[in-house]
Design a protein around this nucleic acid. Structure first.
Lengths: 193, 193
DNA sequence: TAACAAACATACCGTTCTGTCTATTCCTGT
DNA sequence: ACAGGAATAGACAGAACGGTATGTTTGTTA
């Protein structure tokens, strides 16, 4: 499409991710993108529309990389459920990690009806759907329940890594993986022994 | 101490919680508090200091209510670990629920060295410490590990409730409780059957 | 009643914010 | 070569931002 438009979205991805949405002024985005202000307002009606475009790109890229990573790590569906947390651990260890952009977005745009909030909710919904499919393939008795539980661990690990400073950045991923193992075993094997 | 100071902190608690930190201007706080601007700057050096004061109050109140609620719900340490999630469920169902103020704060102040970020990390650290004590009292083989796992579920439930719109607001609490039950059983009872 | 501090209202500072406008220049396709 | 759309710089608007500088009013205490 348009090269300048892409530059704007890339710069906004970086800045909104690192500094936050309200804290990042439009002028800063223009400076980093190397683009004039009118060019921005030719491509986007407002800052909010730029944010929504950024979230769309981020959602697509993140989920693609996530699913690809999980499926590359393991073939067996059960192992793939565990591989989720290895994938997360690698993400956490990335020096540019600055939490989940969608969690951060809901923090800044708390109103449920805000399009930005809605886009974030949709992102989480799609992730849970994917995990539910993996759980079903693994033969969980209640795939929906197991997926919900694993998603709680995922989000918890993301938040913990973002909030609490620790040396080993992947450690929350490892903790979550251990918990996930117990939950998966319980959901797949026998009943309560 | 000072009545006006309290009014400022109360108003800021409400506004920062509902609208966010950057999105809430100092003038709005003054308007809600019914206080003059100079009074604010007599009590606080800056907006950041007001935010820090708000976080201190929030941390103290939240943890007190949380611990009190958990200990009122159950006497047996093992049951108390589960009661955590009933307490969370009630919190989620509160119509004024707008997520965890400390998670939101780290979203807006991403820099690890920012005092606001540090205060949020300390809040989470104190919660985990409390859960670890409960886990130890319950006789977990590895109280630290179990506490970490349960905290991941807690944070995950908070985030999910905040991000995803559902009818039953306590539902993430129930999901987390069910997962917690499995993890607690596994950490307390025998090995893998 | 006199003294004093706390809170008051109001105006103002400089900066930054999103968004608009205009006039000029660049680039590309025919 | 040249026309036309895209992008440019830069000024501008109007509002909101955090924070300060004024004097004035109020309430308590001695």
């Amino acid at each position: 499409m348009s090269k300048k438009r892409d530059q704007l979205v890339e710069a906004a991805l970086e800045l909104f991710g690192q500094e936050g949405f309200h804290a990042t002024g439009i002028d800063r985005v223009l400076e980093v993108a190397g683009v004039a202000k009118m060019t921005l307002y030719n491509h986007f009606r407002s800052k909010e529309e730029l944010i929504l475009a950024v979230l769309r790109v981020r959602d697509e890229r993140w989920r693609n990389q996530f699913m690809l990573g999980v499926e590359r790590r393991a073939k067996d569906p059960r192992d793939r459920l565990l591989a989720i947390f290895d994938e997360l651990g690698d993400w956490f260890a990335d020096p540019g990690f600055s939490g989940c952009m969608f969690i951060n977005a809901t923090a800044e745009y708390a109103d449920q009806d805000d399009p930005i909030h809605a886009a974030s909710a949709e992102h989480k919904r799609l992730i849970e759907k994917y995990v539910r499919e993996l759980a079903a393939q693994a033969g969980a008795r209640e795939p929906g329940v197991l997926a919900s539980q694993l998603c709680l661990l995922m989000e918890g690990a993301v938040v913990y890594t973002q909030v609490c400073p620790v040396k080993d950045k992947g450690c929350a991923g490892a903790t979550a993986k251990r918990a996930a193992g117990v939950l998966i075993d319980h959901a797949l094997d026998g009943v309560s022994c």
